[in-house]
């Protein structure tokens, strides 16, 4: 049954790739290859959203413990993982050649630059260099197009946050992918505080006072009950950016993703 559902595209010497977490899946799909299996499939569809995975993609289980027996039976041509998720390569490398995408690996590269070089490096392994260059160019083009659009709006400072509960926000800053995209768009990140090695910091909602009435971009998905309780919060209601009506919610973008996430972020910003 599974075989019957596999779309035509795969028939043409498409490498069969399995992805152990979402950033690598994003990279693989953006190179025009639909992975045969991705870990935490439902999560990808909720939190990463694009680029879309095909409907017949299989679930590998959790990202912390991708199912080795499923991988073994699938016998993929390559397994792609990403740095920093704590998985040991050994068991996967025994099943198929393992490629590790080195985003946020602490080597000092900027996330955007790393996303470009890692897209190329993965493409070389998969023989998709042409597509890689296309992705790099189209992302750059999207960003410069967006930059022009945003230039008309004046480019006021903005801050990007995820909200998980009604008292804290995760704010993205230095050494985050979003920071790189903002830089390329000529936009100023209103949040200039310290961030960890993954480019974000979790802080109390009151610290958003620091961004004044800059625009606040909040990433979906926000749990509905959290949204309701944030809107009831007297502090939130009185924040300068909220009183100025400068809060925008944009659809999900994976903050730890690659070029597709960068382009998606830029496009969504332009649509606000």
């Amino acid at each position: 049954m599974l075989v019957a559902q596999i779309p035509v595209a795969r028939a043409a010497n498409m490498p069969r790739v399995a992805c152990l977490e979402w950033a690598s899946a994003e990279l693989v799909v953006s190179l025009g290859i639909q992975p045969v299996a991705v870990a935490d499939l439902k999560g990808y569809r909720d939190w990463v959203v694009a680029p879309r995975l095909s409907d017949d993609c299989l679930d590998l289980g959790s990202r912390g413990e991708p199912n080795l027996e499923v991988l073994l039976k699938l016998n993929p041509d390559m397994i792609v993982s990403a740095h920093g998720y704590g998985l040991e390569g050994g068991p996967f490398a025994k099943i198929a050649p393992l490629h590790t995408v080195a985003l946020y690996d602490g080597t000092g590269g900027t996330p955007y630059g790393q996303a470009e070089s890692e897209t190329l490096r993965l493409a070389e392994r998969l023989g998709r260099e042409t597509q890689a260059h296309e992705v790099i160019e189209s992302t750059a083009a999207t960003i410069s197009r967006t930059k022009k659009m945003l230039a008309d709006q004046g480019g006021s400072p903005l801050a990007v946050v995820s909200m998980f509960d009604d008292r804290h926000v995760r704010v993205y800053g230095r050494s985050s992918l979003f920071q790189d995209v903002l830089d390329r768009l000529g936009l100023i990140n209103a949040w200039t505080g310290e961030t960890g090695s993954w480019g974000f910091s979790t802080m109390g909602i009151e610290e958003l006072v620091a961004i004044g009435n800059a625009r606040l971009i909040s990433l979906d998905p926000i749990p509905p009950h959290v949204k309701i309780r944030i809107e009831q919060s007297t502090l939130w209601k009185s924040l300068p950016c909220v009183r100025a009506g400068n809060v925008t919610t944009i659809p999900p973008v994976w903050p730890f993703g690659g070029l597709a996430a960068a382009a998606r972020f830029a496009t969504l910003l332009a649509q606000t």
């Binding site: 995820s162 998980f164 509960d165 009604d166 008292r167 804290h168 995760r170 979790t202 109390g204 909602i205 009151e206 749990p223 959290v226 944030i230 009831q232 919060s233 007297t234 502090l235 939130w236 209601k237």
Partner: peptide, 16 residues
């Protein structure tokens, strides 16, 4: 994420 933050027992408030 909400639960992780809540579990750790932070006293940060978002209003009265």
């Amino acid at each position: 994420q909400e639960l992780y933050i809540w579990q750790s027992g932070s006293l940060i408030q978002n209003g009265d």
